[in-house]
Amino acid sequence: MALFQTSSDNPAAQKSTALAVLSVAFVLVWLFIAAFPFLWTAWGSFKAEGDFFSRADWMNAIAGPATTAQTGGAFTLDGYRGAWIEKEFWRAAMNTGIVTLCVTMISLTLGTLGGYALARSGFRYTFWILIAALVFRAMPHVTLVSGYLLPFFQLNIWGYLPTTIIVLVAINQPFTLWMLHSFFLSIPKDLDEAAMVDGCTRFQAFRLAIIPVMWPGVVTTGLFSFLLAYNDFTTTSMLLTETNATMIPKINSFLGSTQEEGKVMYAVAAVVSAIIPLFVLIMFFQRQIVSGLTAGAVKG
């Protein structure tokens, strides 16, 4: 009651109450748009196809009459069983694990060294390297892939995981360099220069003075390297064979083979499986992701 009285006394405050309600409503709508598709698909992945794609009534996806009729329960793991065991999605998940882990580690190693050098060297060519990196960052990946295929066939290195890993590391470099470059700029120069005055070489100064304080920046950059490797479709779908495909190309191959057999639920289950690691990632690293997205903007 008191709240209402004060607001009717003060027109400005009253307006802000209405505005606050409107703001919360707007945010709820946005939350619904952003999150509902994922929740819906995750829920639907435990249903039979007749319920998730219901001709009769969309409510079927919630109650699940077809699922009950087919399997006896309101929820079924058939989609997951079909995708992971029958279609061997576990193999793709393992390949994704190998590729993302290697890409992240190698990109960070190269990127840390390079980013440090770019941040500490005042010569003119650092500018040109950064500009070249920006142009490389803008190249659509598929144009690069069309340059790889023929040479890779000739050299007989097409279709192997290590080739794909190196390619992804290289595609990742421009971004990693930019990000770590701006991160190292924020570490005071005095730190490594003091170490060098005390008799360290440049590399010792890097190892002893910089490495201990660089982890926040490296973790943030690492998250984005991980995402690039995990989310890649263009490179992996063109450079890997069917037997060593990673998750995303595998999901795409499900679409071709499962749609007509009525096994679209395999693809739904695989899609949900691929989203879960990302969900966990945001849960633990929300702060780092946000700071990483803004780092480039605020500093450069």
Partner: peptide, 13 residues
């Protein structure tokens, strides 16, 4: 410091 990174970008981009 920078050669591995430059080499990767030169060879694959």
């Amino acid at each position: 410091f920078i050669w591995p990174s430059l080499l990767a970008m030169a060879l694959f981009i």
